[in-house]
Nucleic acid binder design. Sequence first.
DNA 1: ACTGAAATTAGATCGCA
DNA 2: TGCGATCTAATTTCAGT
Lengths: 156, 156
Amino acid sequence: MAAELDKIDFQILKILQENGRITNLQLSNEIGLSPAPTLERVRKLENAEYIKSYHALVDEEKLGLGIKTFIQISLDFHQKNTIQTFLDEIKHIKEVTECHHVTGQCDFLLKVYVRDIKSYEQLIMEKISRITVVKTFQTMMIMSTSKKEPIVPLEY
Amino acid sequence: MAAELDKIDFQILKILQENGRITNLQLSNEIGLSPAPTLERVRKLENAEYIKSYHALVDEEKLGLGIKTFIQISLDFHQKNTIQTFLDEIKHIKEVTECHHVTGQCDFLLKVYVRDIKSYEQLIMEKISRITVVKTFQTMMIMSTSKKEPIVPLEY
DNA sequence: ACTGAAATTAGATCGCA
DNA sequence: TGCGATCTAATTTCAGT
């Protein structure tokens, strides 16, 4: 199954990362193949899960999500199953869209979206600070984002 | 132009966030309208830029990007145009996929993808640490990610 | 605004090079 | 593997409600 990817496959991935709704016809023109083998390659990439899924990118601010933050979290490892307990709690908080286990001064880094400061305080008070295994946390409020590509640097 | 969005518009946004390649026909079934007005609503959301773009989500690990990190950066504000100088440098580093201006102990938070540790050292040595306005930086290496949705919590 | 049908275009399959 | 033709299915348009 996992035959290596060639240059054309990487081209396809690059293009689909940037435009997930390009038509197969357009795509085939850009890579210089005819539609049939192009589609076959795309399906192969999907089936082998080099492409995991497709998503619309929405404008969070226009949709009322005015507050975006990262939260750095340190856990209290004196309890049982500290990490699993933490992950189980985080999983259910819909405002948390990313949760990364990291090295450094903190244990986890979360990405959070909420409507306004009031909702943020509520999230902190009623959800984050109530997780028993959380020892300390610190908010990094995002003031602006100058680069945000749902795109990963690919090179053949 | 900016007539308020109704419940159906939010349903559409939610569905397209999770499946950016759903057919208009399927979408119309899920929201309970016929294809014609469904397509009209999607176009309206695209034109008003509630939907900014569509993207394929790829499997970075399978594609050879084994190292993912966040870098916290503090700037030296004794220089001229510190922030603009920094942003101009960062813009050209393709390994940096996100750059957020944040509050807290550091000034900027970057997301970085590279192939391996060797490439990471190279990035740090030859690019990040050579930016004159960078005072200090600290790496948070991502060990695992338990939640990562290219999806924002929407509520009508 | 939504419906339903008609017209256009894209997607999917298959035999052949 | 890739191509070209063919069939199938989705997108798009439009007159009617």
